[in-house]
């Protein structure tokens, strides 16, 4: 998959409901190749739900998602991943008992290249593949400054480090589109700077486009080409950071919910 170009993600009138709760209502958004798309919005606006619906964790109740022209709606999460879309989770989803390296290796699962039988027999191909994959994750561990912690239990690491492991695992999938759900929440200034560096690196390399969900509005404005604003499950505006910063509707959405600002200062 390396070398294949980022694809276009088209979200068309997507709806998602949980019983009486409407998490998404007719959300339409297009994520162009080679762009960093920021998504902001108050707590409970439906940002995480949008990622969950796109990646097939929750099948949407209305609308459709297409990636490179292929419809994703109705596919299982693992088939959606195979089209080149990787994600991180707002609340860490690392395997705490595995080491950092093993967690990142999980991201290489689609490239294992051997089945259970070969694994059980422990024969050459399985061993060679493991060695190859271990080589492949080293650069990722370096990129995210995780070499020192590579053999630590992931569950024993501080929160900010765990978030980076999540990112490394997602990148190990070699995605063409990466969906990041609040990667900077609860991390330090240095972690935030590293995040900016990595997003810019991915953008510069041109192999992977990024959707960035963040509460830290400053961060979103700094790295995004366009920003979408969600409120009450609806996408109220999509535009360049400069325009968004002065949009009255955005201000209104945020003024309704004070704790957003608390979140921003917390993560700073």
């Amino acid at each position: 998959m390396k070398g294949s170009l980022p694809g276009e993600l088209v979200i068309d009138r997507l709806g998602l409901r949980f019983g009486g709760v409407v998490a998404l209502r007719e959300v339409s958004l297009t994520h162009h190749p080679d762009e960093v798309l920021g998504i902001i919005g108050p707590n409970g606006a439906g940002k995480t739900s949008l990622i969950n619906a796109v990646t097939g964790i929750y099948p949407p109740s209305a609308g459709s998602v297409r990636y490179r022209g292929t419809p994703l709606t109705g596919l299982s999460p693992e088939s959606i991943v195979a089209t080149g879309i990787a994600r991180t989770f707002q609340h860490n989803q690392l395997c705490g008992d595995l080491t950092v390296r093993e967690n990142v290796l999980l991201g290489c699962h689609l490239r294992l290249g051997y089945g259970v039988v070969k694994a059980a027999l422990g024969i050459g191909p399985a061993r060679r593949a493991e060695r190859r994959l271990r080589g492949e994750v080293e650069p990722l561990l370096e990129l995210l400054n995780l070499e020192h912690a590579a053999d630590e239990r992931a569950g024993s690491l501080p929160y900010g480090l765990q978030k980076r492991v999540e990112m490394a695992r997602a990148l190990a999938l070699r995605p063409t589109t990466l969906l990041l759900d609040e990667p900077a929440a609860g991390t330090s200034d240095a972690d935030r700077a590293a995040l900016v560096r990595i997003i810019k690196h991915l953008r510069g390399e041109g192999s992977c486009s990024v959707v960035l969900i963040e509460h830290d509005v400053g961060l979103v404005m700094e790295v995004s080409d366009r920003v979408a604003v969600l409120d009450w499950g609806e996408c109220i505006v999509v535009d360049t950071p400069e325009v968004i910063a002065t949009d009255a509707r955005v201000l209104a959405a945020y003024l309704g919910v004070d704790d957003t600002h608390a979140d921003v200062s917390e993560s700073a």
Partner: peptide, 17 residues
């Protein structure tokens, strides 16, 4: 490794393909 992920984090396992 995949089994450990299935045990501890099935959603993340699916997100790893």
């Amino acid at each position: 490794r995949a089994l450990e992920a299935v045990k501890a984090r099935d959603v993340a396992a699916a997100a790893c393909g």
